[in-house]
Design a protein around this nucleic acid. Structure first.
Length: 268
DNA sequence: ATGGTAGGTACCCTA
């Protein structure tokens, strides 16, 4: 089973690029973030016509929004409001796997970016981000155990490791790579023993990026990337990891997202 | 030290 995650920054604008990524990678399940689309306007048909007839999404006007599209049947698990806000950042489904006795859940997550200033006293968006990550860790610990087969994917907006950013030293005070964010994300990861599936294949100190800012003249030449998008699995799935792909080419497509598609293949 | 770009929306917010 192939699971793709991509922050596409407007699903209505970039649905054709999602189709292009689907044609390149042939995922079974596609998890999108930043759909920026209220549910009644979600472009379901274009994905249905491409073979992804199952969909679970939660969106709102202008901001945020997550969607799960699938060519295999799933059961909807739920969608959640997080940290007291109805901001459409978390949804989950479950699929039946012949390898496991119980269903495998897939969680799609869009963690808040957190604003520019890494100080909770002057920046409420940063406080929201840290609180959101705390709440996710508590949710996983309260709802599951580390023996449940679960996948969580999404734009976590945090690059936790030294080589998840182009310059560890220069980004220590930049939101996405500050020590407090890394501490919170690590606590969330430890909640039920999440395994970082991308680093399973490309351990430190190899540089791995999934996002390059729009504000760089030449993203490829400057290569000031960050690994903000993640795929984690619980311990029972670790031995079933078969491969991964980061489609960096997509950063060069016409009208690109600033994030690129990240995919994991699991033997389920 | 600063400002750079993008999308959605409505004249500004978030990323």
């Amino acid at each position: 089973m192939k699971i793709l995650t991509w922050n596409i920054n407007s699903v209505r604008l970039r649905a054709p690029l999602v189709i292009k990524a689907i044609q390149a990678l042939a995922p079974d399940i596609v998890c999108l973030q930043e759909t920026k689309c209220p549910d009644p306007q979600f472009p379901e048909k274009i994905f249905r016509d491409a073979g992804y007839e199952h969909a679970h999404f939660t969106g709102m006007k202008g901001y945020n929004g997550v969607a799960i599209l699938s060519r295999v049947p799933f059961h909807t698990v739920d969608k959640w409001d997080r940290f007291g806000k109805a901001d459409c950042r978390h949804a989950a489904v479950e699929v039946i796997s012949p390898k496991f006795k119980k269903p495998v859940q897939i969680h799609n997550l869009y963690i808040p970016a957190g604003g520019d200033i890494p100080d909770v006293n002057v920046n409420e968006k940063f406080a929201h981000k840290l609180g959101f990550v705390d709440e996710m860790g508590k949710f996983f610990a309260d709802t599951y155990t580390r023996t449940d087969p679960i996948v969580v994917v999404g734009d976590f907006n945090i690059a936790p490791l030294v080589n998840d950013v182009w310059s560890h030293k220069q980004l220590l005070d930049v939101v996405s790579h500050t020590p407090i964010e890394v501490e919170k994300l690590t606590a969330m990861q430890n909640s039920i023993g999440w395994v970082d599936a991308i680093r399973h294949f490309t351990p430190e100190p190899e540089k791995v990026y999934t996002w390059w800012s729009y504000r760089n003249k030449d993203w490829k030449a400057s290569n000031r990337g960050r690994r903000l998008d993640h795929i984690w699995v619980t311990p029972p799935l670790k031995d079933h990891l078969k491969g991964y792909k980061i489609l960096s080419d997509a950063r060069d497509w016409t009208q690109p997202s600033d994030h690129v598609p990240v995919m994991i293949e699991l033997d389920l």
